[in-house]
């Protein structure tokens, strides 16, 4: 098991947000974390990354318990996060965003390089010397994914990767994720858009009010289609 989250509980001050989150990702797998707004998807990711300390439950990555570890130590174990809202470095150029990120990363065979990122997202190559804040939303998203890849992640986590983007750009980003998957990259996608994710993912996890309410494969999804739709409010 690569990432395993069991019975995760978390709160912001006095208000509890997560009650019982269970989720796991194995090597080379693509898993989705689905749920409506405010159900605790981003909070779950924040707990995994160490940005929020969990109140209970266990999180382990590659055999190490990572509860309570500092974010940089968790990231260095091999988790690459593409955060919600992109969060690139606005006044560094595309090139600088990618290079800065590659500082003290783990060395792995088939390492990601700037050239490799630019061949995945040719638009980034064209905008190499532009400041990141002059890119369009879609390009910024591509840069955020490229930046995460530059850390050579064993697991790539995307939090609402296509939020607020034009349909054409969305399609482009999903295509790139499919290409990554074919290369064997493990991916955890947090989203609301189940129709596209069915094609991309092996398994799905649905959360509702801070609890995991459904887990299953694409086949299970077909069977429980109505139930899952109810939770997602599609």
């Amino acid at each position: 098991m690569m990432l395993s989250v069991t019975n995760l509980q978390a709160a912001y001050g006095a208000s509890r947000v997560l009650f019982d989150i269970n989720l796991d990702v194995t090597e080379g797998e693509c898993v989705t974390l689905l749920g409506r707004n405010g159900m605790g998807k981003t909070t779950t990711i924040r707990c995994i990354m160490g940005l929020l300390v969990a109140n209970g439950g266990a999180i382990s990555f590659a055999g190490c318990a990572i509860n309570g570890r500092a974010p940089e130590r968790i990231a260095r174990l091999g988790i690459g996060l593409v955060p919600e809202g992109r969060q690139i470095f606005p006044t560094l150029t595309v090139h600088e965003n990618l290079v800065a990120t590659a500082a003290n990363r783990m060395v792995r065979p088939n390492s990601w390089t700037e050239e490799r990122v630019c061949s995945l997202f040719p638009r980034l190559g064209e905008r190499r010397n532009q400041w990141a804040n002059t890119l369009s939303g879609g390009e910024q998203q591509m840069l955020a994914i490229g930046r995460a890849l530059m850390t050579n992640p064993r697991l790539l986590i995307l939090d609402e990767a296509t939020e607020g983007l034009a349909p054409v750009i969305r399609a482009e980003i999903w295509q790139c994720l499919e290409a990554l998957r074919r290369e064997g990259q493990s991916i955890l996608v947090v989203d609301k858009n189940i129709n596209v994710l069915r094609r991309l993912a092996d398994r799905h996890v649905v959360i509702e009010k801070g609890m995991t309410v459904w887990r299953g494969t694409n086949a299970d999804l077909d069977r429980d289609w109505d139930k899952v739709h109810g939770w997602l409010g599609v």
């Binding site: 606005p90 800065a100 590659a102 500082a103």
Partner: peptide, 24 residues
């Protein structure tokens, strides 16, 4: 240099740098 870029990144957002795995 890469050191300088990381430093500039830290000024823009220390947390973003930490999430990337950099000990700020």
């Amino acid at each position: 240099s890469r050191f300088g870029l990381v430093l500039r990144g830290i000024r823009q957002s220390e947390r973003r740098m930490a999430v990337i795995g950099i000990s700020t």
